[in-house]
Simulated assay, not measured.
Amino acid sequence: MHQFKELLIWKKSRLFCSKIYNVTADFPSEEKFGITNQLRRASVSIASNIAEGSSRNSNKEFARFLEIAIGSAYEVETQLLISSDLGFINEEGITELILLLEEIIKMTSKFRTTLL
């Protein structure tokens, strides 16, 4: 069993989630139950799956939860790109978020391979 609070991927995922909440606070109010909600839920899912997976009894199970976290990260990336297409996020904002997200994906993928 891993201590998720000590994992850098979990710490970065939490930070990323906070950034998503801050960015989406400026989205149009009519998107509250649309893309704002989707982005927030998917970003929470990244850190949550890392934490939940760390409690599992085997590395194989933990690796599966990391795979789900990576899937959520790609979901967030797609939603960020759509948000940019709709003009909800400026170029500078999306670049920063995508770079952080790519770092989280790479780190999580690499960590996952050590478990298998």
Rank of each mutant, 00 (worst) to 15 (best):
S43W: 04
S43T: 09
V44L: 14
V44I: 13
S45H: 09
S45L: 08
S45W: 06
I46S: 00
I46R: 00
I46V: 10
A47G: 04
S48C: 13
S48L: 14
N49G: 04
I50L: 11
I50K: 01
A51H: 12
A51E: 06
A51W: 11
E52Y: 10
E52I: 06
G53F: 10
G53P: 15
G53L: 10
S55R: 15
S55L: 15
S55A: 15
N57W: 08
N57L: 11
N57G: 14
N57C: 08
N57R: 12
S58K: 07
S58D: 08
S58L: 04
N59W: 11
N59D: 15
N59T: 10
N59A: 10
K60N: 14
K60M: 10
K60R: 14
K60Y: 15
E61K: 05
E61T: 05
E61Y: 07
F62W: 09
F62C: 09
F62I: 04
F62Q: 09
R64E: 14
R64D: 13
L66T: 01
L66H: 02
E67K: 14
E67T: 14
E67W: 12
E67L: 08
E67C: 12
I68P: 01
I68R: 02
I68A: 01
I70W: 03
I70E: 09
I70T: 11
I70K: 09
I70H: 02
G71E: 10
G71C: 06
S72F: 05
S72H: 07
A73V: 07
Y74E: 13
E75C: 10
V76L: 13
V76M: 14
V76W: 07
E77N: 13
E77G: 08
E77I: 07
E77Q: 14
Q79M: 12
L80A: 07
L80V: 04
L80I: 04
L80M: 12
L80C: 08
L81D: 14
L81M: 12
I82V: 15
I82C: 12
I82D: 14
I82M: 13
I82H: 11
S83N: 06
S83Y: 05
S83E: 07
S83C: 07
S83A: 11
S84H: 14
S84L: 06
S84I: 01
D85I: 03
D85G: 08
D85M: 05
L86D: 08
G87N: 06
G87K: 04
G87D: 05
G87M: 04
F88T: 02
F88R: 03
F88V: 03
I89F: 02
I89P: 00
I89C: 02
I89K: 00
I89W: 00
I89E: 00
N90F: 01
N90K: 09
E91M: 03
E91W: 03
E91L: 04
E91Q: 08
E91N: 12
E92R: 08
E92W: 03
G93L: 03
G93R: 09
I94W: 04
I94E: 13
I94G: 04
E96P: 05
E96G: 03
L97V: 03
L97A: 02
L97C: 05
I98D: 07
I98S: 08
L99W: 10
L100G: 12
L100A: 06
L100S: 09
L100M: 11
L101I: 02
L101S: 00
L101C: 00
L101K: 01
L101Y: 01
E102W: 10
E103A: 06
E103S: 12
I104S: 00
I104D: 00
I104C: 01
